[in-house]
Simulated assay, not measured.
Amino acid sequence: MKIDKLSIIIPAYNEGGTIHLILNKIKAVELMDNIQKEIIIVDDCSRDNTEQAVAAYRDENPDLNIRYFKHPVNKGKGAALHTGIAQATGDYTIIQDADLEYDPEEYNDLLKPICKGFADVVYGSRFMGSNPHRILFFWHTIGNRWLTFLSNMLSNLNLTDMETCYKLFDTKLLQSLNLREKRFGFEPEVTIKMSRIPQIRIYEVGISYYGRTYEEGKKIGWKDGFRAIYCILKYGLFTGK
């Protein structure tokens, strides 16, 4: 399958100190088959210098296709993704957190099943493959696996990592969904709603994971886990439209 452009959506909140690092990594990646990159940064009303950092980076890299949007009030990661999805013009769209937990060098690994004509959606799993994974929180890992298991039960999928950031979608299919979750409930909602598209082809590939501690800036907490359970039940058991 021929892909001309990949939209990379970056939800950002108080990432002024590191966002240039992830942009450097994205810039350095040469996508297979000469696929072009569209970088969509959605600043969810950061209180630091994120806006200034992005502006400076864009001025220094005029050849890089960076589009910047800012929410006037903080709405949550899911809301930032909604904004980015609506603005995406690429054939396919991938989600990239502004931190350094996920490696853009692996974009091509996710693109391969698409370009070979096998997949419409590809998830990057932190729990499969031989790539490096930082060892962090036991209960966080158990929570992720349990949420994936519950999601699989109600979506009839066999994913190993539903909560992964790296999700690569056919842009038109993604934009066709009525997505409602404003925070981290985005992950189970988009997974369950995508699974219900007739003849959808979902693949999974192993990726590396360079996780952050809470002291280093990790933002997801136990409240988000309970919200994820609610969303899985809401969209899995009921229509949840």
Rank of each mutant, 00 (worst) to 15 (best):
K2H: 11
K5H: 01
K5T: 09
K5F: 01
I8E: 04
I8S: 02
I10N: 04
P11C: 07
A12K: 10
G16Q: 00
G16V: 02
T18C: 12
I19Y: 11
H20Y: 09
L21A: 09
L21K: 14
I22C: 03
I22Y: 01
K25I: 00
K25C: 06
A28G: 06
V29K: 09
V29H: 05
E30G: 03
D33F: 00
I35C: 05
I35F: 04
K37Q: 09
S46V: 07
S46G: 12
S46L: 08
R47E: 14
E51S: 14
E51D: 13
A53V: 10
A53N: 08
A56G: 09
D59A: 15
P62L: 06
P62M: 03
N65V: 03
R67V: 11
Y68F: 15
F69S: 10
F69Q: 09
H71L: 14
P72E: 13
P72V: 06
K75L: 15
G76T: 00
G76R: 02
A80D: 01
L81F: 02
H82M: 11
A86D: 10
A86T: 07
A86C: 01
Q87N: 10
A88Q: 02
T89R: 10
G90W: 05
D91V: 02
Y92Q: 07
I95K: 05
D97R: 05
D99W: 07
Y102G: 00
E106P: 01
D109T: 15
L111H: 08
K112W: 03
K112T: 13
I114H: 03
K116R: 13
V121W: 07
G124S: 06
S125A: 12
R126N: 02
G129N: 08
S130W: 08
H133W: 06
H133R: 15
R134D: 10
G143M: 09
N144M: 13
W146E: 12
L147S: 11
T148I: 05
F149Q: 04
S151N: 13
S151L: 12
M153A: 11
M153F: 12
L154C: 08
L157D: 09
L157K: 03
T160M: 11
D161S: 05
Y166T: 08
Y166L: 14
F169Y: 15
D170S: 13
T171P: 01
K172Y: 00
L173I: 13
L173W: 06
S176P: 07
S176M: 04
L179A: 08
R180W: 10
E181P: 01
R183N: 13
R183I: 11
F186P: 07
E187Q: 11
P188D: 11
V190W: 09
M194I: 15
I200K: 10
Y203E: 12
I207E: 00
I207P: 02
I207H: 04
Y209L: 10
Y209A: 11
G211F: 02
R212K: 15
Y214P: 03
E215F: 07
G221W: 07
F226W: 13
R227N: 15
I229E: 02
I232L: 08
L233K: 03
G236D: 06
G236L: 03
F238H: 10
T239Y: 13
K241S: 12
